[in-house]
Nucleic acid binder design. Structure first.
Lengths: 135, 135
DNA sequence: GGTTGACCTTCCAGATACTGGAAGGTCTAG
DNA sequence: CTAGACCTTCCAGTATCTGGAAGGTCAACC
């Protein structure tokens, strides 16, 4: 399929897909007319990169994650180590996102429309947990 | 406190803190000697920005999130709407991160050291859920 | 067959978000 | 009063896109 379809299916702009090719993140086949040609597997890879980037992984980290995808038949300790490290990253991100969520939720539910000049709960936005007893 | 301490406590490089000041994300007081002077509340804001950026929010989004922090005594429907929208963003990110995690976990646990040329589970890396029955 | 409009191509410039380094001022300890 | 660790500004470079120009390709319709 052409780059436009791949863009629609992966959610990435065509521009970005070309850029990823330019930096060697993923190459595409070319049709006889010179158009890039994407398989369903390519679209999967693009979707994967899209969500990984959205979740705060760098392009280099995406390259490592894609290597899991590509080197899957190679029982490589190195590749497995990368995967384990990424799992740890993800767990850390999950914990932070959860705490950010609860802080923001708390703010919306309890700290709004209040005209006191300071709300100690809001200070919890920056920390891992929301301190509540001073509110 | 000086920028170095604020950097250590917030986890952001001093360079980045200066950059955030330059783009007006958060201003700092100045001591008599011209050094930037950060309060504990400033450090909270910096930590907050740090984690938000790590989780894939843009600087502009961080600016909105910080406005919740700053306009907290203003019972503004607009600010509340931003908070609700950010909560939705966070929920979406949580769901994606969870599915990415389970896909990667599955890959590490089941698809490795396998020398078959293709592993359908890995294709699930790009989707919201991991299809398992074809493996 | 010709034209139109939606595709595609490359290339180059600009935007966003840092990041590193130089040149130099300030502070604290010995 | 000197050494080393801070701090300052400024300017240049990097990473990751993003927009636009100039032009080729394709499918459909007259």
């Amino acid at each position: 399929m052409n780059i436009g379809s791949a863009a629609r299916k992966s959610g990435l702009p065509a521009k970005t897909i070309r850029y990823y090719e330019e930096i060697g993140l993923l190459k595409a086949d070319r049709a006889a007319n010179g158009y890039r040609d994407y398989s369903a597997a390519d679209v999967n890879r693009l979707q994967f990169v899209h969500r990984s980037r959205n979740l705060g992984f760098s392009v280099e980290e995406c390259r490592q994650l894609l290597s899991l995808y590509d080197d899957k038949q190679r029982a490589s300790a190195e590749v497995k180590a990368i995967a384990e490290a990424k799992l740890d990253d993800i767990d850390r991100k999950l914990a932070e996102l959860t705490s950010l969520r609860s802080a923001l939720r708390h703010l919306v539910d309890h700290c709004h429309g209040d005209d006191r000049p300071d709300c100690p709960i809001i200070d919890g936005l920056s920390g891992a947990t929301v301190a509540c007893e001073t509110h």
